[in-house]
């Protein structure tokens, strides 16, 4: 195993306007890990993901992705956004969306190569969307669109795959499929996923982080009492003895 960590974050601070969103976040994720990030809404999960992807710049602190600056590592990472129901009237096919995953490899000013198309074909097949390749993306169901976006991320052949609540708009059946699939993928790709579902965390992830301005990291995939205290405002499906069942009541947001 390579000794460069997948993600190395030191004393990371980020503010929205003047309100701190992240305070002194520090953690290291080794390559090959499967990290689940949980925390209350507005706790800074998505912000952290955007910082890791280089979409936002930290106010203070450092982020290294595979030993590089986040934006320099763009060809080595991929992400699946939380929201896929944007631009639905945009005239673009499933194939064209998935091909976007090859942008970091394809040369600027040229078309996509045969290799790009082959890789996208494989990714679409893995996601079960190859049969839909010529369909307009806007005509798909939420779950189908999610699969296309996952295929797009896979087509980048990333070393780290980031997902922001990838199952927010899909049926429970696909949710299980997806996590089984990610588990398989995790044999050679580091995975970081935001999720509300602690059941997912206990079954699939290797490490857990809870984000609510501060971050608590647990390298053994265990949810600690400390995390629960921090994440208490958000509804979570808690696990006991390997069987998921709801322990915490759903709270109204304060």
């Amino acid at each position: 195993m390579n000794h460069v960590p997948a993600i190395e974050v030191k004393n990371l601070w980020f503010y929205f306007e003047k309100a701190p969103v992240l305070e002194g976040v520090t953690f290291t994720l080794e390559q090959g890990d499967f990290l689940g990030i949980l925390g209350p809404n507005g706790g800074g999960k998505t912000t952290l993901l955007k910082l890791l992807l280089g979409m936002l710049k930290p106010a203070k602190g450092s982020i290294r992705i595979l030993g590089q600056n986040p934006h320099d590592a763009h060809h080595r990472v991929a992400y699946v956004p939380q929201n896929t129901d944007f631009n639905l009237s945009f005239p673009i096919s499933v194939m064209e969306v998935a091909l976007m995953g090859r942008l970091s490899r394809a040369r600027m000013g040229r078309g996509y190569s045969g290799e790009d198309r082959a890789s996208v074909q494989e990714a679409l097949k893995k996601a079960g969307m190859w049969a839909y390749k010529d369909r307009p993306v806007g005509s798909l169901s939420g779950g189908q669109r999610q699969r296309v976006f996952i295929a797009r991320a896979l087509a980048t052949e990333p070393e780290i795959l980031f997902l922001d609540e990838p199952t927010a708009s899909v049926d429970p059946e696909f949710e299980t499929d997806l996590y089984e699939f990610l588990k398989e993928l995790n044999r050679y790709v580091t995975i970081v996923t935001i999720t509300h579902d602690v059941g997912v965390i206990s079954r699939y992830v290797k490490s857990v982080a809870c984000v609510n301005r501060r971050l608590i990291f647990h390298g053994e995939g265990k949810i600690t009492k400390e995390m629960l205290d921090m994440a208490y405002q958000c509804p979570v499906d808690l696990i006991a003895h390997g069987i998921p069942h709801r322990v915490l009541p759903e709270h109204e947001e304060k």
């Binding site: 990472v77 956004p81 944007f86």
Partner: peptide, 12 residues
């Protein structure tokens, strides 16, 4: 045009 955020992340 379709997904500016993703385009940025992959280095466009």
């Amino acid at each position: 045009s379709y997904d500016e955020e993703f385009a940025f992340v992959v280095g466009v």
